[in-house]
Nucleic acid binder design. Structure first.
Length: 572
DNA sequence: GCCGTTTTCGGCCCGACTGTTTTCAGTCG
């Protein structure tokens, strides 16, 4: 957890420096450091102890010292001093579209405004328009922005936005004179949350395309209109940015609009080193355009293999590509099974037969049906006698079914003292035991870590479900020392789950990468409570890919027989 | 504030659109 805190201080420091009007490159250094630290798969405190901070990209002697200061004192004197100079509440103003650091500074210096309400009032009294560089339009935009913030339209879970984006794309495709269309940005990178929908189009009639886009029934408001770039706000509250380029620039534009920003900057620096220039229109040597039609072509001209969008976060993918050691990422087609669904036996809505049918429709060959254990009454925990009925029923169904097999599993509660919610003589009858915490979230880090560690050490447990307990936008992870959890998993050969219910995605990408580096087996589980939620499997694959997962790292790529063998092998 | 097979000082990614301006700064991605 420390990494996130250090990164947060650097990020806020960068923002305050921006408002102050400091050297932009110094600001970028803090931003870059924040991103680097956030993406680390190792504990920053460990790196500090080993004296390896300065090996991190973008961290020099000064920032290393500042990291140590944060680790030692819990804060940064530079940050504290900046906060005295510039009220940190002004950082909220940066969230308002059309307000950047310069304008925020001007408002603060002229009027001393430090709250959204004061700002709103000043706009209504037309005091803001009087400032140099401001006008009535700016005032209007600020008022709109404040309203949006009050309605809280922040980042949304990928699983919520992805279907929406696909719907909008299909709609544009059916109405506009275009050649190619694809979603770009963080959605294409499959980031766990997204702020807006980026769409790239090639067409020889850009103006007509943009007219179609801005008049879609889903559009609430046109924010900016141009032939190459148009931004709209959709009725569901999200912004959509649409870019149209010529077909010959498809690859360079797609690479550029897919990002991430940090990845793009590195790629452009790499181009400069080779005497080239990259923008969304192509790769140029001097005036001459030498590539741009496909992404492969753009990467190739820099001497790089194609880098999958999920890796484009400047988390070492460029170095790996340069050295020819990019991972062979797992594909959705490699997935044979879902490691975690619920049935009517606990709080799921589906019968075993329905689960089988859905699995068959999805082309899966096995599904682990892991219902809650007896103590979890609120979630219909399965009493022991029903457990054996379920086992018998699964055996009957498996005997009849050729294409899909069910795995008799249980999501067994880890009780507050670290013991499990079924006795050992019951656990040993369950083919797949995935342990999980559902209560006692408020325990200390030491207690929760200890609970999980002792469950993982239990010889009848195979895996740990939703290891950090976070729920995106709703609940922070519980206090748990993941290094310790991973170490234990590694030591005992146990698997950690990538729970891919769209609000969980737990483990996240960074944890997954750490597991891959350590050689810990991973298993994707949809945690589906209705059969349609099994479709979230693709989100799980996205997280796995973002975590550099290869086929061998995921138990879901095993055949049914091989998975069963793995389960039995652990208990020998 | 970082970084270096052109450099330890002087660079640091690139372009579109808006709103405020009579040529461009600021914002955004």
């Amino acid at each position: 957890m420390k990494n996130k805190e250090v990164a947060e201080i650097f990020r806020k420091t960068a923002e305050l420096l921006e408002i102050k009007g400091d050297n932009p490159f110094r600001i970028r250094a803090y931003e870059r450091a924040a991103q680097t630290i956030e993406s680390l798969t190792k504990d920053i405190e460990e790196l500090a102890k080993e004296g390896r901070l300065e090996n991190l990209p973008g961290i020099g002697a000064d920032l290393a010292g500042k990291i140590k200061e944060i680790l030692k004192t819990g804060t940064l004197s530079l940050y504290e001093n900046l906060k005295k100079e510039i009220p940190p509440v002004l950082l909220n103003f940066l969230e308002i579209p059309s307000l950047g650091p310069k304008k925020v500074k001007a408002i603060y210096e002229k009027y001393g405004i430090i709250s959204l309400d004061e700002l709103e009032k000043a706009c209504l009294q037309h005091k803001i328009a009087k400032l140099p560089g401001f006008g009535l339009k700016t005032e209007e935009n600020i008022l709109k922005g404040i309203k949006l913030i009050k309605e809280k339209t922040g980042r949304r879970p990928l699983g919520e936005v992805l279907p929406l984006a696909e719907e909008v794309i299909a709609l544009i495709k059916s109405r506009a004179p275009l050649l190619q269309i694809e979603v770009a940005g963080s959605i294409r990178r499959r980031k766990e949350t997204v702020k807006d929908i980026d769409v790239l189009i090639t067409s020889t009639h850009p103006l007509e395309v943009m007219k179609v886009v801005s008049s879609l029934p889903l559009v609430e408001e046109v924010l900016a209109f141009g032939e190459t770039k148009t931004s709209v706000r959709l009725k569901m509250g999200m912004q959509m940015d649409v870019r149209v380029v010529e077909p010959s620039a498809w690859g360079s534009a797609l690479a550029y609009f897919t990002g991430s920003k940090a990845h793009n900057i590195r790629i452009r620096e790499l181009a400069l080193e080779r005497g080239l220039k990259i923008n969304e229109y192509g790769v140029f040597r001097g005036e001459e355009r030498i590539a741009g039609k496909t992404e492969e072509e753009v990467y190739a001209i820099l001497g790089l293999p194609f880098i999958p969008p999920e890796l484009r976060e400047d988390r070492g993918e460029i170095e790996a590509a340069l050295q020819g050691r990019l991972p062979q990422l797992v594909n959705y087609e490699d997935i044979q099974g879902d490691g975690h669904v619920h049935s009517k036996y606990s709080d799921g809505m589906a019968s075993l037969e329905e689960i089988m049918a859905k699995a068959e429709a999805m082309g899966l060959s096995w599904v682990a049906v892991c219902d809650h254990s007896q103590g979890l009454k609120v979630a219909g925990g399965v009493p022991v006698e029903d457990l054996f009925k379920k086992k018998k029923r699964i055996e009957e169904l498996n005997a009849r079914s050729k294409k899909v097999k069910l795995v008799f599993g249980a999501e067994v509660d880890i009780l507050s003292d670290g013991t499990l919610d079924y006795p050992d003589e019951v656990l040993k009858e369950i083919d797949f035991v995935i342990a999980a915490i559902h209560t006692g979230f408020q325990q200390t880090e030491k207690q929760i870590t200890q609970r999980i560690v002792s469950a993982l050490k239990h010889p009848l447990v195979h895996a740990l479900s939703h290891p950090t307990g976070r729920v995106i936008g709703e609940r922070e992870p519980y206090a748990v020392n993941m290094e310790e959890v991973m170490k234990t998993a590694k030591e005992h050969g146990k698997a950690l789950e990538i729970n891919c219910y769209y609000k969980r995605l737990d483990l996240n990408d960074i944890h997954v990468k750490a597991c891959v580096e350590m050689g810990i087996p991973l298993i994707i589980g949809t945690d589906a409570h209705i059969v349609d939620q099994m479709e979230y499997l693709r989100l799980g694959v996205s997280v796995a890919r973002r975590g550099w997962c290869e086929k061998k790292d995921l138990l879901n790529t095993f055949t049914y027989d091989k998975f069963m063998e793995w389960l039995r092998g652990l208990r020998k």
